[in-house]
Amino acid sequence: MSILVNNRTKVVVQGLSGSQGRFHAARMKEYGTNIVAGVVPGKGGTEIDDTPVFDTMMEAVRKTGANASIVYVPPAFAADAVMEAVDANLDLCVCITEGIPVKDMLKVKRMMKTGTSRTMLIGPNCPGVITPGECKMGIMPGEIHTPGTVGIISKSGTLTYEAVKQVSSFGFGQSTCIGIGGDPIIGLKYIDLLEMFEYDAQTEAVVLIGEIGGQAEVKAGEWIKQNFSKPVVSFIAGQTAPKGKRMGHAGAIISGGEDTALAKMEALTKCGVHVVHSPADIGKKVAEVLGK
């Protein structure tokens, strides 16, 4: 088992004609992801690298039975693409696009909350989701992942790869790895995913990687304390970050006193999470808590 995606996931690529979309669709196919269609408004009826292209998501779903989509559409139109996926009632939409205006995301979330669609969103501004050996929906290097028992949830892209590599080097594979994105307004959050990992028999431990800004990690800690039965290892990036300066991610800015790395680390520790101070200790800690 795993969460969110597996070898039965049928994927539509939104924005398949763009350079990013085309490049990563090819990488995903190489990995074994079942890509069944592309959606590019105005290019319906054509093919890109043997993948059929449709004008609308509705058509793509009807003709191919797709149940998930990945968005590589440029920022100005990306929120609209996500809304199209939500409107088509897919199971999952992964939005890779970086630089979507926050106001657009507020509208997307409003639609998701008030409508009847079941679609879950990952991202935006994220590396995507991967269930090693089964399905890669994203831009992560597939080859560093191995199937296994550790779930990984992270706001960051490359720092997630770092964690995956470390976990693998200690002999542990991953059940599913999710980059939730570094923007202030995102789809699935830590708690949504922890809940799925709790019920996933394959997952024995979870690595939770956070960063400065917002309250998401602290809330996750409180939830873990009450509801999560598996060990959680955590690293919070930005211990050295100065207040008031945005650290790359739109969400990574220390605004109040409660959203510093140290405050988050303390809160998580109090909730029974195994917090590491150095990013180099993530793999070691996982090995330690799994007792192998």
């Binding site: 892209g157 490359t158 720092l159 770092e162 990687i209 101070h277």
Partner: peptide, 21 residues
């Protein structure tokens, strides 16, 4: 560094070894 999260983590690890980014 490539990536904001890894860039912050890099600053952190420098500090953990007693250096200053």
């Amino acid at each position: 560094v490539n990536g904001a999260g890894l860039a912050m983590a890099t600053m952190d690890i420098i500090k953990s070894f007693g250096g200053q980014p």
